[in-house]
Amino acid sequence: MKTKIIQISAGKGPLECTFVVAKVLKIFLKELVNNNIEYTILYKENGIENGTIQSVSMQLKGNQLADFLQYWIGSIQWIGNSSFRKYNKRKNWFIGCFEIDVSHSLEMNENEIQFQAIRSSGAGGQHVNKVSSAVRAKHLKTGLQVLVMDSRSQHQNKKTAIKILQEKVANFNVEHTKEQIKNQWKNHQEIQRGNPVRVFTGIDFKQTKKDKSFKGKRNQLKNDLKKEIE
């Protein structure tokens, strides 16, 4: 199952673009469900008006992500009148859908952990003070470390230390991903106008007829393939 991080953003666009992001997000999530793609919202920055979104980032998991996203990655256009500025004559608004590269996430291997056996301290009598049962474990790539002395067994403390370090490295990856999202948000401030991958119109956000859904295009390709085989 493939995993990707996607960001839908209004960039430096006006208030109307944050309205479009909120509307498009609902459509995007609905299509994810229809195509059996799992999603998790990682970060969302709301706009200044109720019901608007400046930017939203999410993690997607599915077997056909590449096919699905080719009809979403790029600029997205909404053709409609502003509901915030009554006399604004502009009718074309653009937002962007981007893929965020998180290929640098770390996977923790036990051979990257440095262990040090030390004497435990605290309650437990002479056995605790004399036997080096406590374990200090350090993940060399991140510098994260943990001291475990819960058990009188050095082996058990080592297993506990590994588990705690795994959680710490996972949290490190989450924070690293958030930082990447913030950095790439700066890169995505400018939204390309023109040549949109999706076009929606009106207050009900209907798609223009020329832009079929991913599912419809996939079915069309299957039908074309059948005709060629026959």
Rank of each mutant, 00 (worst) to 15 (best):
K182E: 13
A66G: 05
F200K: 03
V197N: 00
S55Q: 08
K91H: 10
K30L: 05
G62H: 04
F94C: 01
K209W: 02
S153V: 01
K130L: 02
P14C: 15
D211V: 08
N63F: 13
S57I: 03
L69K: 00
N50G: 12
N46T: 12
R136H: 09
K2F: 04
Q192N: 03
G62R: 13
D224M: 06
I37T: 10
Q166E: 08
M58S: 12
M1N: 10
D224K: 14
G143K: 07
W72P: 00
N50C: 01
Q156S: 10
W72I: 00
V102K: 03
R193Q: 12
K182L: 07
F19Q: 05
I41F: 06
L42Q: 03
Q180G: 10
L69Q: 01
Y43Q: 09
G124A: 03
K61W: 07
A66S: 08
N173E: 08
G125M: 00
D224I: 15
E31G: 07
V131S: 02
F214K: 05
I79S: 00
G143V: 13
T201A: 11
Y43G: 02
K26N: 06
M58F: 04
A22L: 07
K217W: 03
N129R: 05
S132D: 07
E179F: 10
K215I: 15
K158A: 03
E31M: 09
A170G: 05
Q59P: 02
N173V: 03
K44C: 09
E110K: 11
E99K: 00
E175T: 13
Q154H: 09
K182N: 13
G202P: 06
A117C: 10
F28C: 04
K222S: 11
A66F: 10
K91M: 10
S55V: 13
R193P: 01
R85A: 04
I73S: 05
L29M: 14
L15V: 12
D101F: 07
V131K: 09
R90C: 02
S57V: 01
F200W: 05
N36V: 11
K12D: 13
S153Y: 00
S121V: 06
F94K: 03
Y43H: 10
N223T: 15
T160K: 03
Q59I: 12
N50H: 09
Q116G: 06
T201M: 06
L165H: 05
N219E: 10
W93M: 02
K30Y: 13
F205M: 02
I229Y: 09
G13R: 15
N157C: 06
Q192R: 05
K138T: 12
S75D: 00
S82C: 11
F200I: 08
V24F: 11
R218I: 08
K86F: 11
I95M: 08
K86P: 07
N111K: 09
N173F: 03
I162L: 05
I191H: 01
N195H: 07
R90K: 05
K2H: 14
W185V: 15
G143P: 05
I37V: 12
I37D: 08
L29E: 13
E107Y: 04
H155C: 04
S120N: 11
M58G: 02
L32G: 09
S9T: 15
I73K: 14
V169P: 01
F94Y: 15
Q54E: 13
Q7F: 08
